[in-house]
Nucleic acid binder design. Structure first.
Ligand code: MN
Ligand code: MN
Ligand code: MN
Ligand code: MN
Lengths: 225, 225
DNA sequence: ATCATAATTTAGGTAAGCCTAATTTTTATC
DNA sequence: GATAAAAATTAGGCTTACCTAAATTATGAT
């Protein structure tokens, strides 16, 4: 039943993958918002995806969806392409890290297996995209990496940035300005009591930056031991 | 009326452009065959394209279509992207010239203005694609180049290859085997009387190749004076 | 000029993906 | 446990871009 997988379906699967990484199910509304379409349309599509011959998702009414192993493979295939494109654009075509996500969102659907192979080879099999997200290897495997949220760092403690949120160009430009990027070493200076706003110091640049708690939750770090 | 131009429409316009280069109109059947769809579908689409606010084509029942200046600009935009992609893949990603057309046919629709600019710059504003077809410049202008069909060469005379047909990988591999590529110098050795099959010698490689008349008509050369 | 054939158009349908409005189910609060 | 709000689903439609079959128009050979 699922021969050629449409661009729309590819994006659905990718979103479902992201929302179910933590183990929970992806809700209809969550997907509708992320994809910029109505909840009714999502219900429709999700029902379809649960009825293909090997189904892409398991779906229970009002309970949200999860990817089947089959659906997960399909999702990882696109995620691999997306992240390869991002790092290629930065490394080979002079893109900044805030420009690549939107571009990859489109190109991922137009990438042939051959192009994927050539780009992967040209970059010598890169392991991470520009935002620190791991690139599934040719067998679609992703290494497990120990990581915690920046928000969970204690005052005075240090860490190394592993990944930053990758979708919002404004946020990326803000982070880039201070040198907050994968590999950067940071130290938590202070945290305000009520709204939990953090001041952090970036070792490499000497900068200090202010990070709110919601952004802090989306930045992953490795805590210095 | 014509805000976002669909991938399908882009391909229609490109085909119409090709078929009307000689000044004649593109026929319904011609387009149907080239696009791999039914004649009825083509009729439908060209009627639509002739009714947009600035129309893309002029259409008269049973008389075929031509591009309006507006439609021509739209076509050239995609042709530019197509050819830039082809040369980029060859120059930067190790593609052979028979692999790039199919790839470009898809990628051309996924290329942003920014990517177009970056690729153009990375190649230092290339003027020709791997098959010798001219790349419209940033203003969508194409230089006029004096060229004749290989078939029109006289026995014993010489010429320089300017462009070869670009769609059929088999043909390209055949030509490549003998070194028949843009820039190659050739000499017509003989032409059989009935079926007009030609034997040509390629200076650079010393090879001799047999070229039938229909292929010979699709290879453009500059005749040596 | 006639008439068969080829080319094109019209008519009527389908599938994918989206929409809004109405309805149903779940959930959270009193 | 009733009930209001939120979440999800169903129902009915729409657009794009295809299709086949039937009807029409153009063409070219007698
Ligand atoms: Mn991304
Ligand atoms: Mn996408
Ligand atoms: Mn081409
Ligand atoms: Mn195309």
């Amino acid at each position: 039943m699922p021969q050629k997988i449409s661009e729309n379906i590819q994006d659905y699967l990718k979103r479902i993958y992201e929302f179910t990484l933590s183990g929970s199910r992806a809700s209809t509304n969550q997907l509708a918002q992320a994809l910029g379409i109505s909840a009714a349309s999502v219900t429709n599509m999700v029902q379809k995806l649960s009825k293909t011959d090997p189904p892409y998702v398991t779906y229970e009414k009002h309970q949200g969806v999860k990817l089947t192993p089959f659906g997960q493979q399909a999702a990882l295939k696109i995620i691999r392409r997306h992240r390869l494109i991002e790092i290629y654009l930065v490394e080979k075509l002079g893109y900044t890290w805030d420009e690549v996500h939107a571009e990859a969102e489109v190109l991922e659907h137009a990438m042939s297996p051959l192009l994927e192979k050539r780009i992967d080879a040209a970059l010598d099999h890169p392991k991470f995209d520009p935002h620190g997200d791991p690139i599934p290897d040719i067998n679609l495997e992703i290494p497990e990496i120990e990581q915690t949220a920046l928000s969970s760092l204690e005052i005075g403690n240090k860490g190394r940035v592993l990944r930053v949120p990758n979708e919002d160009p404004q946020v990326l430009r803000y982070l880039g300005k201070f040198g907050i990027r994968p590999g950067a070493h940071i130290k938590l200076i202070s945290r305000t009591p009520y709204d939990q706003t953090m001041r952090i110091k970036i070792t490499e640049t000497g900068n200090e930056a202010v990070i709110g708690p919601s952004l802090g939750n989306k930045i992953s770090i490795a805590k210095d031991s």
